[in-house]
Amino acid sequence: MATEAQGESGGGLEFHPMDQFIVSPLFGDGGVAWYTITNATLWMALAVAAVFALLVMGTAQRQIIPTRMQSVAELAYGFIYKMVEDICGKDGVKYFPYIMTLFMFIVFSNFLGLLPMAFTPTSHIAVTAVMAFAVFIAVTVLGFVKNGAGFLGLFWVSSAPLPLRPVLALIEVISYFVRPVSHSIRLAGNMMAGHAVIKVFAGFAAIAAIAPLSVVAITAMYGLEVLVSFIQAYVFTILTCVYLKDALHPHH
């Protein structure tokens, strides 16, 4: 943007906070076709490998008294399972694997993205939007399949006074369709902003006088980002559960 242009011309300070998000091919220098193996591919594959390592290899011994890895895997399992059960109820438990998939992918993408020089798939709106729209479409279809036209009762607030209901229904419909947008932009925006800010601080480190402050700021931001990485994964998952609950029990 503007700062970038300035940095290019100024020569001394170079800010490229957005360069870390560029999707580029791993091998060769060609364009990015849909099948090209890119850095996005690499880091998604690493996320899959990490999920496999934690949840499959970590639990391979099936011990009654768990090892550390197995304990973490069980913790993740229990965390999401309880969330699904608490929010969606007993009949939501059969969708637990899907929600667990989303959570594990996001949480590992976020954390792997915190490694220096890493690429963060979840900082891309393309990725988060696919997941959010998948949730949105699945939940909408599920709502109509399970409840038929009764699913529309979600928009008809029967506890409100009758004259207000059409207005509320309109607002409810709008908020319903905004869901996937906010759902996806929240995650991508959080990841992108944090990484970009760290990169901006890193750019300032080129000036010797500011460098110590810059390092402290990067450290602090990094700590915050570790927190945000988990919290955003949690938020995405819990919102998915809430939407799923609306589909299963549409009545307020």
Binding site: M44, P97, H124, V127
Partner: peptide
């Protein structure tokens, strides 16, 4: 297109790993 393709692949991979191996195993252990 590239990101969506690989994302879908990654999600399917994770789903298969979870539903076939990890979750039943952890559930059984618990």
């Amino acid at each position: 297109g590239n990101q969506i393709f690989w994302l879908v692949l990654a999600l399917i991979a994770i789903y298969l790993v979870l539903s076939r191996m990890a979750l039943p195993r952890i559930g059984a252990v618990l």
